[in-house]
């Protein structure tokens, strides 16, 4: 990570923030929500890759990051599996 990439990453984050705020004006809620989450995921990925230097760090640290995200998804998906299919 150099000064240049840090500033570029910052600009990218602000751009994504603008996009997700503008997406609020759309009318179909499904489109709006998916855009919000896409921007959030992109912002999080940018912060983790650049500011947390995952881009240049050892595969072990990347595995830890991916593992964390997977475990949250595990918890949310299996709990939703119950809530959504409850008669």
């Amino acid at each position: 990570m150099t000064n240049r990439t840090a500033v570029l990453c910052w600009l990218g984050l602000l751009a994504l923030l603008a996009v997700t705020l503008l997406a609020g004006a759309l009318d179909s809620s499904a489109l709006r929500y998916s855009l919000h989450f896409l921007c959030a995921a992109a912002m999080a990925a940018l912060v983790m890759l650049v500011f947390m230097r995952l881009y240049t760090s050892s595969p072990l640290l990347r595995l830890v990051a991916v593992g964390g995200v997977m475990w949250i998804a595990l918890l949310i998906l299996l709990t939703l599996a119950d809530t959504l299919t409850r008669s």
Binding site: A6, V7, L13, V47
Partner: peptide
Amino acid sequence: LSSGLTMALAEL
């Protein structure tokens, strides 16, 4: 997000 930038610059 900006404080994330300033933190990164501090690290650099």
